[in-house]
Write a protein that binds this DNA or RNA. Structure first.
Lengths: 334, 334
DNA sequence: TTGAAAGCGCTAACAG
DNA sequence: CTGTTAGCGCTTTCAA
C-alpha cells in the first residue's frame, strides 16, 4: 500500500495540491471540471486525509475529550450522548476515555489528550484534580470540571446540587408521612454522599417531627443494598425505619429486592427512594422513586461551557449548578 | 501562552533539538549534564510534546480504536477493560467511540480514526460492515471484527458461539425436567438472536421429548420482558411454559419481576434462564441463571489478534470463536 | 555523544 | 479560480 497523499491526488487529477486542499476544505471555489477530476482521483486512489499533517499546520485539532471514571455508568453514558450531539453540531468530535477512578490512569489520559492537542476536555473525576486542570489551562487546554463544584472561581465547572437532591428526597418521605427516616450510604469522604446526607439532615431538622438514622455502607452497589435490606428485615418491626433514602438507585434496588423477599411491604411498611434515576430504577419490582439529575441538559451545557472558554469568553457564571428533581413512583406511593 | 516546542526547550537548555529528541525518546545516550539541563528546561517551560508533529514524522500513531454500539452496555465495558489493559502493556492507548448502533455515526467514527492514523481498530457492530472493514484494511488500517464471525476468511474476527450458548441454556432447562420450553426473543434478523434460537432448537430436537414455543419480542430490554411476563401470567396455568430461555438477561429480569408479582413461582412453576450474565443477573430478585461469554479473555484476545495483524503476521486462525458457559443460579434450581 | 538539516502531509498566503 | 511555496513540530540520518 503506497501512501497516498494530497499531492498524489493532485498529480492524478492534474491539478495543484493547493486546489485539492481548497476542494477538500471549501476554502475557495473550485471549477466543476476540476472538482470532478479531484473527486475521481480521490475515489480511485482511496485517499484519506492525514490528520497529523493537517493538525500540525492548523495548530489545533477538532476534537474534545470526555474523561469519566466509568463509561458503563448509565449516568455518564447519557451525558456523553448530549456531549457528542452538541459537539457534532459545532464540528467537533469527542474522544472518550475511561479512567476507572484510577488517578494514574486518569493522569495518563490527560497527558495523552494534551499531547494530541485536543481543543478542550470535560473531566469527571472523583478525586481532587483542580490543580491538574489548572496547569492544563495554563498551558492552553481549556477544561470543564464535571460533577463537582470547582473551588477556584476561574475553573469552570458543572455540577448538581446534591444537598438540594438529598433535601427533596427526604422531604418527600416526610410529606408522605414517614417519621423514622434512614439514610443508607457512605463513605462520607465522598463529596456526593456527604452532600446528600446534609440535605437529608436539613429536611429532617426543618420538620422537627422526625428522626434520621444513618446506615453506613462501604460501597454503593446492589449487593450493599442486599446486606442492608437483610439487616433491616431482621429487626423487630417496631425498630425498622418507615422511610429510607438510599444514596443511589443501585443500593435502593438491592434493598427493595431483599425487603420484599423477606415479606416487608414496600411502600406500605417502608417507603424507599433512590437517587440518580438510572434506567433500571423504573424497571425494579417496585418501580423506584428517585432523584433525577438533568442528564440531557447536562452534557449540552458542559459543551457550551467548554466552547465558551475555548472561544476565549470568560463565561459569566463559571460554575453551573443544576437542580435535580424528584421522580415519584410506586416505592413511595402511599 | 507562547507555544513551547522542542526547539524552545533546546534553546533554554542550550543544546540542539536533536539532543532533546534523543533525550525524550531514549534514541541515543545523552550526557548527564545535558539531561539535567533539558529536564529543567522542560519543567520550567511546561513543555508538552506535540503529537501531530511526532506522528507526521513517524508515519503512525500509537493508539488503537475500539468502536462499540453502546459503551454503557456492561458487556462491552468489561471487554473495553481487557482491551485497555492489554494495549497499555504494549505501549498503545485506546480511543473509545460510541456508535449507538447508528450506521452513519459508526461510519463517521471509522473515518475519523482512519484520518487520525490509528494503528488498528476493534469494531463491534450490529450491522454488515465487512466490506467497510475490508477497505480500511486495504488502505492500511488493520481491523478486528468483534461479536460476529466474519464471513471473509481474511477478515480477522472474534466472536462467541451463540448457537452453542442457546444449546447449553436449553439443554439445562431440559435437564432439570422442563418439557414445555419457550424461547423469548427477536427479531430474527439479528444474527445473535437467530443463533441462540437455533441452538435451542437443536437441544429440543435432540431431547425428542419437549416442545419449543417462540415468543417474539421487538426489543430486548426490561420492558419487553415485563410485557411477556404479563402475558404468560395471564394464561391458563396449563398453557404456560415450564421453562423459558430469554434471549438476554434484561428480558429475563423483566420477566421474573412480573411473573413473581403475579404469583407465578420461579423456578418451581417456571424455570428461567437469561443470557450474557450481566452484573445485574446475579442481583435479580431471583438470581438468574445465565450464559456467560468469556468477557475478560475476549478483550485480551481481540488486542492480541489485532497486534498480530499489525505486525504483519497472518494470524493462523483469523477467526477466534469462544465458547460461552452456563452459570446456574436460583432461577433454575429445582 | 552531539549538532545540522531534511523532510513527513497539509494549509494558507500570495501571485497570477 | 488556480499554482507555488513556506513552514507547522518532530525524528532521524549523517557528520563531526
Amino acid at each position: 500500500m503506497a501512501k497516498v497523499g494530497i499531492r498524489e491526488v493532485a498529480r492524478v487529477a492534474d491539478v495543484s495540491v493547493g486546489t485539492v486542499s481548497h476542494y477538500l476544505n471549501g476554502t475557495s471555489p473550485v471549477s466543476d471540471d476540476k472538482s470532478r477530476r479531484i473527486q475521481a482521483a480521490i475515489d480511485q486512489l482511496g485517499f484519506v486525509r492525514n490528520n497529523a499533517g493537517r493538525q500540525l499546520r492548523l495548530g489545533h485539532s477538532s476534537t474534545i475529550a470526555y474523561v469519566v471514571p466509568d463509561v458503563s455508568n448509565p449516568f455518564f453514558a447519557t451525558i456523553a450522548e448530549g456531549i457528542e450531539q452538541r459537539a457534532a453540531g459545532r464540528g467537533l468530535s469527542v474522544f472518550l476515555a475511561n479512567s476507572k477512578g484510577d488517578q494514574p490512569r486518569e493522569d495518563a489520559y490527560l497527558d495523552l489528550f494534551e499531547e494530541h492537542g485536543v481543543r478542550g476536555m470535560i473531566v469527571a473525576s472523583p478525586g481532587q484534580i483542580e490543580n491538574r486542570l489548572a496547569s492544563l489551562s495554563a498551558r492552553g487546554t481549556p477544561t470543564v470540571l464535571m460533577g463537582q463544584l470547582a473551588s477556584s472561581p476561574s475553573q469552570p465547572s458543572i455540577s448538581i446540587d446534591d444537598v438540594l437532591g438529598g433535601y427533596i428526597a427526604t422531604k418527600h418521605l416526610l410529606d408522605i408521612g414517614c417519621r423514622r427516616i434512614a439514610f443508607v450510604g457512605g463513605p462520607l469522604s465522598v463529596r456526593q454522599v456527604r452532600d446528600r446526607l446534609e440535605g437529608a439532615n436539613r429536611a429532617v431538622r426543618e420538620s422537627g417531627a422526625a428522626t434520621l438514622e444513618v446506615i453506613d455502607v462501604e460501597t454503593r452497589v446492589i449487593s450493599a443494598g442486599h446486606a442492608v435490606g437483610d439487616a433491616i428485615a431482621a429487626r423487630d418491626p417496631a425498630m425498622r425505619p418507615d422511610g429510607v433514602f438510599a444514596v443511589n438507585d443501585l443500593v435502593a434496588i438491592g434493598m427493595v429486592q431483599t425487603l420484599i423477599a423477606h415479606g416487608v411491604r414496600v411502600p406500605e411498611e417502608l417507603a424507599l427512594t433512590g437517587y440518580d434515576d438510572i434506567e433500571y430504577a423504573g424497571s425494579a419490582i417496585v418501580p423506584l422513586t428517585s432523584v433525577r439529575p438533568p442528564h440531557e441538559e447536562f452534557g449540552v451545557a458542559a459543551v457550551d461551557l467548554l466552547l465558551a472558554v475555548i472561544d476565549g469568553e470568560a463565561p459569566d457564571p463559571a460554575h453551573l449548578v443544576f437542580a435535580p428533581e424528584l421522580v415519584a413512583r410506586a416505592s413511595t406511593a402511599r
